[in-house]
C-alpha cells in the first residue's frame, strides 16, 4: 500500500462509506473497493460477500492470494416505540456497536430524559423510515404493540433488505399482525421474515431481560445466519 491509497481509505471511512481494502499477498498491490459493489469482477464479488458477512478474510482468485479487509459501517438498529423496553434495548445495542435510532411520534415517550444520548426521531414510523437507510446492515424492531405504529414500520422494513425484522407481542398478537399484513398483500414468505415474538426464549421477564433476549437474537442473526 502507498500513502495515497492509505489517505483515500481514511477519507472513504470518514465519509461513512463501507470499504474493503484488498491486498495482493505476493506483491502488496492494494485495491480499494467501495460498497455496495455492483461490478461482476471476481475480486469485487468476493469483497461484497466478505462485507456482507462482516468477515475480513483471505481469498484465492485465479491462483492469486488476496486479503480482503472489511471496514463496514456499524450495523443499524431502528427501535420503533420509545417504550420501557426500548430504554435498555437501545443502550445495549449502542454498547454492542449498533448505530441506534429510536422512533416514536408520541413526544411524551420519546424524550431525551428517558433516552439520554440516543438519537430520537419523533415522526410516524413510515415517515421516519423513509428518511433513514434501510439496507442489509439494518435491523428494525417494533415494540409498541399498537398496529397504528408497528404496522407501518413493518411494511417499510418488509419492502427493504433489512437483515432482521422483529416485533414484540404475544403469539396471539403476532398472529393478528400477520393476518393484517397478509390482507395488505404480503406473501407468507415475506411475513415469515418477521421474528415474532421477537427475542430468544430465555424466560425473560423484566424490560432489561427482554432487551437481552432481543439483542441475543439480533446478534445471532447478524453473525450466524447465512441468509442474513
Amino acid at each position: 500500500m502507498d500513502r495515497k491509497t492509505l489517505a483515500k481509505a481514511i477519507d472513504a471511512r470518514k465519509s461513512g462509506a463501507g470499504l474493503v481494502i484488498a491486498t495482493r499477498l505476493d506483491t502488496a498491490e492494494t485495491r480499494l473497493i467501495t460498497l455496495p459493489v455492483t461490478s461482476p469482477d471476481p475480486l469485487d464479488r468476493a469483497a461484497d460477500e466478505a462485507a456482507r458477512r462482516d468477515a475480513s478474510q483471505r481469498v484465492e482468485i485465479d491462483g492469486v492470494s488476496w486479503f480482503l479487509n472489511v471496514f463496514n459501517e456499524p450495523p443499524r438498529l431502528y427501535v420503533v416505540g420509545a417504550v420501557h423496553i426500548a430504554q435498555p434495548l437501545s443502550h445495549m445495542a449502542a454498547m454492542a456497536g449498533f448505530s441506534v435510532v429510536v422512533i416514536d411520534p408520541r413526544t411524551a415517550f420519546a424524550t431525551g430524559e428517558r433516552f439520554p444520548g440516543l438519537h430520537l426521531v419523533t415522526a410516524w414510523p413510515d415517515e421516519a423510515l423513509a428518511d433513514l437507510p434501510l439496507d442489509r446492515r439494518t435491523a428494525v424492531v417494533t415494540l409498541t404493540h399498537d398496529p397504528k405504529l408497528d404496522d407501518p414500520a413493518l411494511v417499510a422494513a418488509l419492502g427493504a433488505p433489512c437483515f432482521f425484522i422483529g416485533a414484540l407481542g404475544s403469539r396471539k398478537t403476532h398472529a393478528a399482525r400477520c393476518a393484517r399484513l397478509k390482507a395488505q398483500g404480503f406473501s407468507d414468505a415475506a411475513i415469515e421474515r418477521i421474528r415474532g415474538p421477537v427475542g430468544l426464549a430465555i424466560g425473560a421477564i423484566s424490560p432489561a431481560e427482554i432487551a437481552v433476549s432481543i439483542m441475543a437474537e439480533l446478534i445471532a442473526t447478524l453473525r450466524q445466519d447465512p441468509s442474513a
Binding site: 500513502r3 492509505l6 489517505a7 481514511i10 471511512r13 475480513s56 479487509n69 471496514f71 463496514n72 456497536g97
Partner: peptide, 17 residues
C-alpha cells in the same frame, strides 16, 4: 468491523506525514 482499524490507519498516515 471495529473502531481500532481507524486509529491504526490514521496513526500510520500521521507518522508518514
Amino acid at each position: 468491523m471495529n473502531q481500532e482499524h481507524d486509529r491504526v490507519l490514521e496513526t500510520a498516515a500521521a507518522w508518514l506525514a
